[in-house]
Design a binder for these strands. Sequence first.
DNA 1: CGTTGTACTGAACGCTCGTTTAGCATATTG
DNA 2: CAATATGCTAAACGAGCGTTCAGTACAACG
Lengths: 223, 223
Amino acid sequence: MRSGQEDRTAAARIRDAAITEFANNGVAGTSIRAIAAAAGVSPGLVIHHFGSKDELRVACDEFVAGIIREVKGGAMASGGAFDVTAAFRTVGEIPAAKYLARTLVDGSPHVTELVDEIVADAMKYVATGVETGMIKPSNHEWERAAILSIWSLGALVLHEHLKRLIGVDITADLSQDPKSATAYMAPALEIYSEGVFTETTVQLMREAFVDSTTTDNLKKEAT
Amino acid sequence: MRSGQEDRTAAARIRDAAITEFANNGVAGTSIRAIAAAAGVSPGLVIHHFGSKDELRVACDEFVAGIIREVKGGAMASGGAFDVTAAFRTVGEIPAAKYLARTLVDGSPHVTELVDEIVADAMKYVATGVETGMIKPSNHEWERAAILSIWSLGALVLHEHLKRLIGVDITADLSQDPKSATAYMAPALEIYSEGVFTETTVQLMREAFVDSTTTDNLKKEAT
DNA sequence: CGTTGTACTGAACGCTCGTTTAGCATATTG
DNA sequence: CAATATGCTAAACGAGCGTTCAGTACAACG
């Protein structure tokens, strides 16, 4: 039932059409009739297979989450991805990234769970990187992993603005032409290597916004 | 018609109610009847004042954009904000941040325009910072400003996940208790000061994802 | 063969949507 | 004072919604 095998049954066509429609217009903005039309079936059949619009949405959530998990696992194994989203930009004909972007905002138990997994993976990736000396240690490992993940996912959600601003579509398939996202990757890597602010500036901001009574500001003591 | 003066006319109540409903449930997920009920008026009056649901949405877009512009201007003037979103987290009783988060994903001409302004402001802020030595120079000033803005806005859009992950609600009013966002600010400032990856790691990633034939990678001795 | 079950359609149901309309108060104006 | 405009409601409209249902085509199985 996953993504391999014979994936052209009517139920699969409905599910794929629903994912595309949901991704483009949101759940509330998509009618069952529109999904049925896109899948080339009658509205009744949608209900027949999935029970209700809400159950269809859940099925889509699970399916997309499943797809992303697969690809994500592969990317983690190969170990080359500092940006999770780079891995699942396009999967087959299904706009998984766009769907995820919508669902991240609308909220859904399955996708929330997926986000937690992504952060956990990032945490694992960062921990390994710190051990092997590829990543600088932090005083707030967990929070840093969460923030880096959120920034990546946030950029994914705002992909249309990013496209408009710097001409890079991060929902597009990167594996074809890895250099196509240069305008995004180059400055991002710059920030990720050297930072942005000078030390004096950061010190000022820390004083303004950071509560130093928590385990903080004590300077690199690797807990 | 802006935000001061006598702001309790029925039209203003409808507009504020609409902003709140749109922010919480999205435009497609909000009915005119729900807005009318929240504002304590009849559905007909909503149309009477705004013409149609779509025109009401435009009015909300413009109003929220106007509010954010005001606050943003003040924050830029005071010069202390590296994170634009910090400025407009809550304005009066209107959930401007949440509304913006929704509209950023749904897409709207007025908010798109606002994003461009935010990036332009960030560009200006960064340029000044580079001159005064508070911010490290970049090979891609414009793209960096865009990406930093998108990351901030993206975190705003995903505020619910951020809240769940690290317990910080970045749509909440920060001016009351500037230290309340420590769990977000501390690691963010860490990244913004020292970066994340060590130089060798970045070099590998640059080779993989960055097209060095563009004005890039040429002058990397400012380490 | 007949029976049974599954995939599927087309029409219809009840409901909610955005919007329209008629009408009623309360100001404003001449 | 009558006349007119404004703010507003209640009721209703047609369209479209999610969903139901009766019925048809067809494959599997005895």
